[in-house]
Amino acid sequence: MSAALRVFAAEGLKQHRRIFGSKLVVFSMLLWPVLTLATTYYTVLPVTSAPGAAQRWPLVAEPGRLLAFLAAGALAYTFFFSLVQSAWHFSFERVSGTLEAMFLTPASRMALVLANGSSALVQNAWLFGCFGIAAALATGSLHLAHPGMLAVAALALLVPAVAWGAFLNSLLMFSRDSAFLYTLLDDPLWFVAGVRLPLFALPVWVKAIGLAFPLTTSLTVLRGALLDGRDTGELAGHLAFLAGLSAVLLGLTAVLLRVGERHAQRTGSLQLF
């Protein structure tokens, strides 16, 4: 256990140097999401202010709530996408030779990918997270059943995000064309996860795809807990699904790490697909 914790400390330093050393974080984690949020808001404004729109989606009756809905989407998307970015960077370690140096060590591979994902999350997302909380408090758009729901929302965002990050790390670590996966998980991710539209507006098949991504359910819980005043009882189904999905992702991560390293040991190539 202590060895695993030391892996977390090590990856924490590495991610801190990689992310914090550059100004990129201010742009990718604050400026771009905020500008994109504004663009999304104005883009859907004509339809949300169409006659009769409030009957189909009551939330649009108040522009503040619409903005909060979209902001929650932007927040969760920023968290999850930061892990796609971090996994993309992780895949470069294969090329630079440091992945081999990592595999030489006795450190647990699972601890490595988990540590890498969670440190990326902490390093990347604190800025937008703080901004989001400040904005929510300033605009009074938080609507909580009880203060404990803040913790539930935070856990429902962070735990699946870390599982997602570990899964992506193991996936991209062994993939030939990580740039392609990166592209695939950028725009399609917000589309299927209901980041910019309520889920009811999506066709069934898109919703079905969206369920495979933890962002979708994470976001449902986040919006329910922070904006709609729901309590754990009302969100129990979503929370259970989210826990199950996180467990599945971690299971897949373990399998990928095992199969990937075995493949590398057999063929001498760290590219599995």
């Binding site: 202590s2 060895a3 030391r6 892996v7 400390a9 090590a10 330093l13 590495k14 140097r17 990689r18 050393g21 630079s96 030779g97 440091t98 081999e100 140096a101 990592m102 060590t105 006795p106 450190a107 490595l112």
Partner: peptide, 21 residues
């Protein structure tokens, strides 16, 4: 190869020291 460009020399050694426990 096998060392991180974004870390200092000391940090690289600390990083791997942690991984080796």
């Amino acid at each position: 190869r096998m060392v991180y460009a974004r870390l200092t020399g000391r940090e690289n050694l600390w990083y791997f020291g942690q991984l080796y426990d």
